[in-house]
Write a protein that binds this DNA or RNA. Structure first.
Lengths: 335, 335
DNA sequence: TTGTAGGCGTTATCAA
DNA sequence: TTGATAACGCCTACAA
């Protein structure tokens, strides 16, 4: 109740008439302690509500049982899924998650210094903000346990990572549209410099080629992953002499924008114009019409990342460095 | 690049020919150091990429600059808003957030032991899972800096907390319906034992009374804050001899359920049946019709909680222990 | 089976 | 302005 003063191992030792060493041994379940002593000291600790100082233990052991989770932004709805996956996997270990969010490369690096660099965290799970290549290379080279989720840039090195096969996923999406009989299919992509944007575009092209469709340059518009971006891109598409009958938007937010534009243009979705998205964010099932999309298993990716990291920390040689998780077309009402 | 071996303050001291004490002083920006020395040592640290050991510092100072964020679950969409608020406020301090999630009271307490009890975190922001009253009382009594967000149970003690005025908010919602000319207004509440459920019910009643409306017991249904719960409650409402023309659902998820039921019953929302929700979760703007609801400013609550906690940690006497944030009716298409 | 003593890397106190 | 030195609380040889 009051526990004003913090108890130390010495207090317990004095109280039970043994040495600090013995208490420590008992604390850590070491062998070679008389059962009778163990019992007695245990009770004393219970009773006194003694909790060892994490600081001292950490200083001594050199590890913190803390895992950094570096997120570039908390505005994307799917990051919660990642967080859930990571924490849920860790729930049964004795690692805790320390949340690091940073929008700029500068702050990222500062955060890194404070946690990773000082050995404060035992490992790092990161969704990389753009332009952090060199920095993350350093982390990797320093042997620090690291797992990258959804690696969106091309790097010289291949970090341990958990990704989705964007090419295949985009292929699936396009293929789905093709199978539904669509002739002209538009593509609205993300920022061109992002690897994932490029890959999704590739998948789209690949599906078209495979179906012997000609690729019209004008049908592909690079946008910015935002809803208004999708809206504008859709308007461009609608103004084409020959309007496509369907579009694959490289993320759900843009797909929402497309639907907005379609409704504004009095186009029935999916009757007049079919839309498929990418991500499957929670909102996707609530919008009207509910969004058909390619699901990225963010929760599972978080889990896998945590598992991979723990393995690394445990010193295991991680064979399968790049884990690819499967995507899946979630058919709802928009396509 | 390699930094295999961890540098200590002693290394820097030796390297620059000063004592550890001096290096430490410089590290912490203490006065009484010859500018010339300071400069020299600074450069040495830079060059060697020296980072002080957090562990040692913590052990010495007895604080960690870590703030625990205890969340009962990561499945509610609005928790991300809270996380955002907290981390964003802390971004400019040098506190980091350690994420503690726990579904059960048992795990909550264990987590508490590991972090709070051991003095590992310097403070705690918590959204309390049900039935943690006694436990949180202990934390509070132990003088540990604590802020509760969205306190949902009645406690003997009044903890420092950031809440929303549920009564007023519910009043606003009901009032809105009243102003739109609705005669009979139903209420679908959350679990009766939750304080927030009771308060929202109060607000509903209060608005009716103030408008001299009679209160029909049958129009109030206590449910469970889930979508199916809302769906079922709505069906009950629809089966009444005299169907209400509008309903106030005590959270958005239930409101979604109500809309589902209405659509199933071929009732036009809001034409035949108006629905107002509570929370303003991200999905609310995407559902069809977009949900009119009372917005709880979760992001702002997170920010306020962080600010309040930091004040406490700084030893400030926190005058306004219970911070009440304003809610707002967000008018969209469902009512 | 148990106790003693030294170290982990800082910061703080007190002299110099 | 600086430098020894003693904490901080725990773990671990090594000795008993």
């Amino acid at each position: 109740m009051r526990e004003k003063k913090k108890l130390t191992i010495a207090d317990i030792a004095k109280q039970t008439g043994v040495s600090k060493a013995t208490v420590s041994r008992i604390l850590n379940g070491k062998p070679d302690v008389a059962p009778e002593t163990r019992e007695r000291v245990f009770r004393a600790m219970e009773e006194a509500q003694y909790v060892p100082s994490v600081f001292a233990t950490q200083l001594n052991r050199g590890t913190s049982n803390l895992i950094g989770l570096l997120l570039p932004s908390l505005t994307w709805p799917w990051v919660l899924e990642v967080i859930r996956g990571v924490t849920e996997h860790l729930e049964h270990s004795d690692y805790e998650v320390i949340l690091l969010t940073s929008t700029t490369p500068e702050r990222t690096e500062k955060l890194f210094r404070k946690t990773v660099g000082s050995g404060f965290a035992d490992g790092l799970i990161a969704i990389l903000p753009p332009n952090t290549t060199s920095f993350i290379e350093d982390v990797y080279m320093s042997q620090f346990p690291l797992v990258v989720i959804d690696d969106r840039e091309a790097h010289k090195t291949e970090f341990p990572s958990v990704v989705v096969d964007n090419v295949t996923a985009a292929y699936q999406a396009t293929r789905y549209l093709l199978d539904r009989g669509h002739g002209m299919i538009g593509f609205i992509g993300g920022p061109a410099q992002l690897l994932c944007s490029q890959e999704r575009y590739q998948g789209y092209i690949q599906a078209l080629r495979e179906a012997d469709r000609s690729v019209h340059e004008t049908l592909s518009i690079m946008s910015d992953f935002t809803q208004v971006g999708g809206y504008q891109a859709a308007k461009t598409l609608f103004s084409l002499p020959q309007r496509p009958s369907a579009v694959f938007a490289a993320n759900d937010l843009m797909a929402f924008g497309v639907i907005d534009a379609a409704q504004e243009a009095r186009l029935n979705v999916p009757g007049d114009f079919a839309v498929i998205g990418f991500d499957d964010i929670p909102q996707a099932q609530f919008c009207q019409p509910a969004l058909t999309t390619v699901r990225q298993p963010m929760y599972e990716m978080g889990k896998a990342a945590a598992a991979l990291l723990i393995a690394q920390i445990g010193g295991q040689i991680v064979r399968e460095k790049r884990i690819k998780l499967d995507t899946q077309v979630i058919v709802r009402a928009s396509a």
